[in-house]
Nucleic acid binder design. Structure first.
Lengths: 253, 253
DNA sequence: CGGTGTATTGATGGAGTTCAACCAGGGTGG
DNA sequence: CCACCCTGGTTGAACTCCATCAATACACCG
């Protein structure tokens, strides 16, 4: 199967993501791409996989925004991650009986499934690529740790600032030269479910950030007016990836 | 080098941990063990590695309790994980320039270092073992996700209940047949730093759990009197590992 | 025996929730 | 084309949970 579909730009995203860690080789990208199923379209607000389902594959997000979330006993919801094109969805539940997280399309979405057995073959066919995946998961883990700090130990204002700065920096990776303005499809209730606040309070904190001239809103467009101040407010340090990954196994030729 | 040191029990712990996912083969455990450095002793309250240090190795915890934590801009601290014997410490920062978490010995500790290059060789020498490691990290990620829910969306009472139930279940893995009572070395301030509360409030919540006859305390000994009620209170579902891991690469003979 | 770190309890205050009302935009169907 | 709703945003008022400040008690240790 030819790896790259007609509109090759989506795969370019995921290449950009993995290229954050120096270069999987073209041969490896080819392998990974050949493991994935056909491109599927999912409509807005459709569930991709529900928590409790048996995990049978993971998903390469090509286009659109998606959410992974968990539902609590009391009906509350926590959004675990806002997914952007290039992300791989559903991997946390690979080791589990029943999926821990629900995956939902936030906008119309294009994705390709990768079966667990296909994924598993990476470990023998492309060890270097498998190691990159391993590191990518560790990176996700650090992001969760940072969010734990943010939610556990900082005020609502800090949390929202952190969320906006973090989202913007992730968008910058897949849209270089994006500038300080960006559009997003999230409701204030969803933002609250990300950072552990009620929709009402998210609204109020948005207002105070505006009043302080730190951000500017127009509908679902947000402009970060004072990035340094926002970063400082967020409290969590920015992470830089290791330069020296010479300890990894050698990439395929 | 003979893999198992004289007191072989500590390695048995880590075997127990990995055996949660069906069986790395003895040959693989031998490989892993041969990668690790000599046994080191660390005194109580000593720092194993500070956040900001360049990550050069990961650590296999053989004996004792350890903490991984992050310090915020305002001086606040979030404890990311309470580590028990058998845990591998420091892996989240493998992909980073500077370590994200500080590792501290909570009790006198025995550990062995594994250099990054040694760890990396697993991916070519023992792909099945590498895949088990990969799954183990995903499992850690799910634990962080569960805690995010707990801290982000539940009351202090729920959080403490969740913490106690979770800690107890992890202790049960390395001390089968432990019963409902267990001892721990944590101060109330440290527990607060785990679940995002102040020491004062941790104390009050402990009291209410006692008053409700859910737990019983004597110094640093805790007895879980009503496990079902505590589980229900915690709100987060209990996770069960996948039975079918046939999609993994074949283990070494 | 003083000193330090931890546990405990009370009193007060504040950040965020909850409840409620109102508004704006955008489908949809008569 | 307009009445109708329905979702999402906005603002106010009351309340609650948890933080903060403070004081005491207790244990361990030089």
């Amino acid at each position: 199967m030819r790896a790259v579909p007609d509109d090759s730009s989506p795969l370019a995203f995921s290449q950009a993501r993995l290229a954050e860690f120096r270069s999987p080789s073209p041969a490896e990208l080819e392998i990974f791409s050949s493991l994935a199923g056909p491109v599927q379209q999912i409509a807005r607000n459709r569930t991709i996989r529900r928590e409790g389902d048996a995990p049978q594959s993971v998903y390469l997000l090509l286009d659109g925004w998606a959410l992974s979330s968990m539902t609590l006993a009391d009906g509350g919801r926590q959004i675990l991650k806002v997914h952007l094109p290039g992300d791989i969805l559903g991997t946390p539940s690979m080791a589990l009986d029943k999926a821990a997280e629900t995956l939902t399309a936030l906008t119309p979405v294009k994705l390709r499934s990768v079966s667990l057995s296909a994924f598993g073959s990476l470990f023998t066919r492309a060890p270097h690529m498998a190691a990159l995946m391993f590191l990518s998961v560790q990176q996700e883990r650090v992001m969760l740790m940072d969010r734990l700090c943010s939610i556990g130990r900082t005020s609502a204002e800090c949390r929202l600032a952190d969320f906006l700065v973090h989202l913007h920096s992730r968008l910058s990776v897949i849209q270089p030269g994006i500038g300080p303005r960006f559009e997003h499809p999230l409701t204030q209730e969803q933002i609250g479910d990300v950072i552990g606040l009620t929709a009402v309070h998210v609204n109020r904190v948005f207002r105070t950030l505006e009043d302080k001239k730190l951000i500017l809103r127009d509908g679902h467009m947000i402009e970060l007016l004072d990035m340094p101040a926002l970063r400082k407010l967020s409290g969590v340090p920015s992470r830089t990836l290791a330069q020296d990954l010479s300890w990894l196994p050698k990439p395929l030729p």
